[in-house]
Structures are given as structure tokens and as C-alpha cells.
Design a binder for these strands. Structure first.
Lengths: 265, 265
DNA sequence: GATTGTGAAGCCCTTCACAGCA
DNA sequence: TGCTGTGAAGGGCTTCACAATC
């Protein structure tokens, strides 16, 4: 997962497990697609396939919301769309501000998935005075000086941070002080927030690194190697392995053999 | 969690739990920052704070990699940076292609976090002929027709999909056929891939929906309400609740009371 | 004295398997 | 008969707490 919760880490929210909450948007998307095709009902098996999960998990998830299905038949699509939307709080309007209108901020502003799900981009905010007034996705960018005013006037409780890493904590502090209690952070920084404020993090490079880990293992398997320790060692392009500090004869009990000296292939 | 694994869902990779793998990039970032400040050693407590996790978890995570610390002292920063980089496969060069050079694709191409972590943007690919040759982040965009050629010539095994939802599966199929075995998907679609191909998903609107869920609960608590079912009901801005299909007197055994008729406040 | 490394306990989540119901 | 809803079992991850080590 590309993400990390910060607040309420293991607390069930009104009996609904976090893991279930995280899947509700997935179900909602699949259901919306069915709804647009005017499909009246759907079985747990079909819906699970569309959402990319297994059907037992889906039924368990729905059981936390209530008994919304009909045995022998399945789930009514429209009804379920409504119930999940309600549970997620999407039947109300959520004004959102995006801070940091670079490439990513602009991408977010243009992202259609927001408007269609109860979110409304109330304002775009950037620290660059040259950006002020310039329309992005049809919304004029406003200067950071007006941040507090904007939050207050629009009753914004959700903020999106798409600034460079260096500015993120400061922006975060101002958002929180102005009344924002939920933050979606795209900057590669760990944000510190007071209790009662939720932070979710999306980190593009972390996802790639996780993929690289698995990719490396595949490469190792292909060539009959066991894993990364068979692949590594001083490379042409990489810095040489730093010597173990304070190395003795008995330490370095890694899971497998010790550091080999040559990189195969 | 902004993400979803698709392949190897619960399989430990060479004894390293998935949850641990997902945190290694976090530790790596914190360690890199310490390294740049020339900090020689760090305790599990300090590093955990910098990475935003608890120290017992961090020590457990590192224990899967081997005994890389020194009791009574802590961890050697440089040594740990190298070991984690190696474990993640970042000591080698990973050529990456980005398909779909809209706002998001451009943001990804410009994202500095890639180059600094062993990833190299080998090519930018877009279906729009008007984009062809146009430089983005200093790299000329190439047309989709050349996709297979590019993958083959550069030995690309990791692809990033930043296209609209409708094009994602088709692009995915072509990437996989050309030899890509890891995909980072930003399109709001569930991708179907053959065994042996990893997909990770980053979905911007899902993260916001999860925040909205918690935000809604906070609002309910403030006003002394228990949860969403106390907040919902037909709203001015939302469509009225669809009637339960085939409703009888005994069904609808939701976790709390039944659907109220009026929205407070 | 300080801090790591790790068995053990507990918790949460997933999966199974089937009773219950339309 | 077909499919949902759910207790129970199983597995993985987190947290605790302390022995081992520097």
C-alpha cells in the first residue's frame, strides 16, 4: 500500500475494520460502473471479481455495514451504492483545498475522480506569486497568504499537500491551525500533527521501491539464484559496499550467507 | 494504504514480511537524511521517530534483514543505508517507462525521487501524436506505436501507467506482452495480469474517500452523534435514499437503528 | 548503563465452511 | 436450489518485555 495511516492506527471505527473501510471505495467504483450499465443486482462473486478481491472477504465486509443482500439473489446495485456512499460520508459535500500547484497539484485539480465522489475543489493555493490568478482546471490559483482566510470562509476540513518536501510541514501546520483535520500528503515527508488530525500519505517513489524489491527477486529466481544477496556486491554503477563498522569474527548473522564479492552477469 | 498488492498477496518474500518490505523505503529515506547530515549512528528509538513508526516494530523489521545493529550503541547509518538499498534492489539501475503523459505523467517524469533511488526514466510514451517529440522533463515523448520497441531495446521491466481509465488495461496488456513484469497503476481500474506480474495501485480518490469516512465520524462525535447513520438521510444536495428493494418487516438488521428521515443541522 | 534482537502474547484480518434464508 | 451472512479456524503483524550484548 502506498499509504500510511497516522491517526487511529488500529482502532475500529464504529465496529468497521480499517481494512474494510479501505476497500469500500473499491466496491463503490465497481458498483457505480454496474449502475451505469443499469445492472439491477449483482452476486458477491461477480462484484468481488470486478473489485479484484475474493468473495468471502466482500461478504464479510458488507456484513459490517448490515444485511444489505438477499440470499439466493445477491445485492441490489442502487441500494448498495447508496449505503456505501452514506457510510463513507460521500452523500455530503466535502470542500477540499490543494496546496502546491506544480505538476502534481495541477494533475490533482484536473482529476475527475474527485468531483464525482462528493469532493469539491474549493481552492488552489501556491506560494509562487507569479501563479496567483492563473487558472488551473478552471480555478484561479490563490496565494499562500490567503490560506487561513480560504479555509475559514469555505469550512474546509480536508487539505491536500502537493508541495515540495521542504514546505510540507509548514503548510501542514498552517492548515491544521486554520481548522483542517484531515490531510492527504503527497510530499515525501513524515508530517507531525496533533491528536485528532488524520494524515494519509501517498508516496510515489515508495511504491516503485516495493516493486523493485519483488522484481529483483524474480530476476534472482530466473537465474537460479536465491535472492538479492546472490545478486549484489560491488557494482560498476553503485558505490562499493561500506565495510561493516566494528566488524568482528562472530557478528553479521544475516539470514543467509555472507556478502559475496562478485556480481554475476 | 494507498495501495493494493495483486501478486504474492500473503507470501513472505524470502522470509521478509510484506509489511516490512513496505516500510523499508521509509527507513531508507530517514537514513538518507541522517547520512546527509553526517550523523554516524542512530538508535532504533530515534530512527523510528524520524520514520514515523514505533521502535519495537523497527527493530523487528531490521531483524529480518540480519543483525545490523550494535547493542548499547545503535545502527551505523551508512552501513544500514547500503544494506536496505541492497535488499530493495536499489543498488542496480531500473529503467522505467511512463505511459500517459498528461498532468500526472508529467508530474511523475519530473519527480526527483525516482532518479535518486536507482530508477531511471527510460522513456515517456503517449498516444497523442501531437505530443510526440515534445520534451517533458527533458525527455522527448514517444508515440505508443513504439512501445514494444522501447521496452525491448531498454530492457524495461517496470512500467508506470498514468493513462485515463479506459486505456489502462490495453496499455497494461501491451506492456506485459513486451516483457514488463511490474506495473505501477495510477488509473482507476482493476488491472488483470497473468501470474508472475506484479501490480501496485495508487488511487488518489480512494485516499480521499477514506479520509472522508473518518472526517464524518469526527463531525458526528462533535455534535454528540454516534456515527454516520445519525448524520445521513435525504439531503438537499444528495439524491434521496433509494427505497430498500423487496423490503419486508423483518429485514434490514443493520448494526444500529434504521434509516432516520431527517438530517440534523 | 544503554540498546539491540527476539520469543511470546495478543490483535486484527482473512479464509473456510456451512447454517440460514429467499 | 442458490447465495448471503457469520461463527470458527488460521495466519500474519504488532507489541510487549526481557535476555543478550556492547
Amino acid at each position: 500500500m502506498a499509504t500510511g495511516r497516522t491517526h487511529r492506527p488500529a482502532t475500529r471505527s464504529r465496529g468497521i475494520p480499517e481494512a474494510t473501510v479501505a476497500r469500500l471505495p473499491l466496491y463503490l467504483r465497481a458498483l457505480t460502473a454496474l449502475s451505469e450499465r443499469s445492472v439491477p443486482t449483482v452476486s458477491s462473486e461477480e462484484l468481488a471479481a470486478a473489485a479484484g478481491v475474493n468473495s468471502a472477504k466482500l461478504r464479510k465486509d458488507f456484513s459490517y455495514l448490515g444485511s444489505y443482500g438477499t440470499r439466493g439473489v445477491g445485492y441490489d446495485v442502487e441500494y448498495l451504492v447508496y449505503q456505501i456512499s452514506r457510510e463513507l460520508g460521500l452523500t455530503q459535500d466535502w470542500p477540499v483545498v490543494i496546496v502546491g500547484i506544480g505538476n502534481l497539484g495541477a494533475a490533482l485539480a484536473n482529476y475527475g475522480g474527485f468531483a464525482s465522489r462528493g469532493f469539491r475543489v474549493a481552492a488552489l493555493i501556491d506560494a509562487d506569486p507569479a501563479m496567483a490568478g492563473k487558472p488551473v482546471a478552471g480555478i484561479p490559483v490563490q496565494h499562500t497568504d490567503e490560506l487561513e482566510q480560504i479555509i475559514g470562509d469555505n469550512g474546509v476540513s480536508i487539505g491536500v499537500i502537493a508541495t515540495p518536501a521542504g514546505a510540507a510541514q509548514q503548510v501542514c501546520d498552517r492548515l491544521v491551525a486554520a481548522g483542517v483535520t484531515s490531510i492527504l500528503n503527497f510530499a515525501p515527508t513524515v508530517l507531525t500533527v496533533p491528536d485528532g488530525v488524520d494524515v494519509r500519505k501517498v508516496d510515489l517513489s515508495i511504491e516503485l521501491q516495493i516493486l523493485a524489491f519483488h522484481e529483483q527477486r524474480k530476476a534472482g529466481e530466473e537465474t537460479g539464484q536465491a535472492g538479492p544477496e546472490a545478486m549484489e556486491g560491488p557494482e560498476d554503477t553503485a558505490p562499493a559496499s561500506p565495510a561493516r563498522p566494528t566488524a568482528t569474527a562472530t557478528d553479521r548473522k544475516g539470514p543467509d550467507g555472507d556478502v559475496p564479492a562478485v556480481m554475476p552477469a
